[in-house]
Design a protein around this nucleic acid. Structure first.
Lengths: 211, 211
DNA sequence: AGTTACGGAACGAGCGTTCGATTTGTAAGA
DNA sequence: TCTTACAAATCGAACGCTCGTTCCGTAACT
């Protein structure tokens, strides 16, 4: 019943849940309405399964973005992280819409668990490496765990607005430039640094580009 | 016809556009269906007017958040900015849902113009002060215009997830702590600073708290 | 008297779901 | 290999309901 799920994803993601009818899914997938109910039981089950598909893809250990998280090299790998998040949003754009559909049409019922478990997942992944980097003096006094979550969530949101909400250039510049600025901000902040610190900074930037 | 708009806002923001019927709006507002059509002409017009209401409130020069933008004191006023954005999200929570309804059920048709005009509005408000602060050596080499937009958008998004999407503590800590970390990151970044720079930083923090 | 405000029945369409009939697939017995 | 039997898959009509909108009669105001 892969055909039906593909059709449902296309329709849900472009029209919303309520505005998509079982007859539309039936026509688009060439699966009769009765058969849809035989396999899924209800319309909401189709939606639920699609969301589960997305969580599965997102947390798949073979996914390139998941593998970057596993390396836990933040903030040195910020450039690569931004690139992979852009690709992830590109690849999963219709699925991402399901999240906002859930918020609007189901009051966030289906996404709660995922978002609530996020801090624990990040902590488990990054805790050790952050402790080591801090001992080595490679982190400032900001909370690096908050930083990596902020970076991840912000980049996902930025590309979602860009690619899913249909508001291109919503920072008044090309995504490449905007991302470059986001990364600079996350690494160095908006306040000035001394000459000595600037040297450290450009060195860190060189290292990041080299890897 | 204020009653009808209030009822429609409540219903749209909790159920979505498609799932809210004219009969529900009629019952909740004690305005007959026929009368709703007499005054608004269509269901979509009601929704449109509510969104226009929100833009009006958001850009109202008497609004405390707008007045903070007018002072253009970023990044010194970040603490106050975060507090006012939290209050704005609190005060306009149902309206904010309309934005996501637009994305899901209207493919972002009604919100395009607002988001596209945002960079120009920020540039007009902040350009001068940022140029001056840069001359005075009070800004680093990050793009301050991107920084203030990032800060604004991120804080709006953070509090929206917290208050509208029903996912409290989605950073694994109280909003107060999370916001404190966001601000630290925006000002100083996640990389370490030299002793000299740290002195500057704590001075800036003291100034920010004093004002 | 005439314009505006209001009410509620009626219309045609579409909704999610159910149901019974039919086809297809599969595995055992001959 | 062919027949038989039973379960799974498939279909589309039908059910009961709700939808956005229209229409027209009545009430209120000026």
């Amino acid at each position: 019943m892969v055909r039906a799920r593909e059709a449902a994803l296309e329709l849900f993601s472009t029209q919303g849940y309520g505005a998509t009818s079982m007859r539309q899914i039936s026509e688009r997938s060439a699966v009769s309405v009765g058969n849809l109910y035989h396999h899924f039981g209800s319309k909401e089950t189709i939606y639920q399964q699609l969301l589960d598909d997305y969580w599965g893809r997102l947390l798949n250990p073979n996914d390139e973005l998941q593998q970057l998280f596993e390396r836990a090299d933040f903030p040195d790998d910020l450039e690569e992280m931004a690139a992979l998040i852009e690709r992830s949003v590109d690849a999963h754009a219709p699925y991402i819409m399901l999240i906002f559909i859930d918020v609007v049409e189901f009051r966030g019922r289906h996404i709660h668990a995922f978002y609530e478990s996020m801090p624990a997942r990040f902590a488990a992944t990054y805790q050790e490496n952050f402790a080591r980097k801090r001992r080595e003096g490679r982190l400032g006094d900001a909370n690096a765990l908050v930083a990596v979550m902020l970076a991840t969530r912000w980049l996902f949101y930025y590309f979602t607005v860009e690619k899913c909400f249909g508001v291109p250039m919503h920072f008044g510049m090309a995504p490449r430039e905007a991302v470059e600025e986001f990364i600079r901000l996350l690494r160095f902040g908006v306040l000035p640094r001394t000459a000595a610190a600037m040297a450290d900074a450009s060195e860190a930037r060189a290292v990041a580009k080299a890897t």
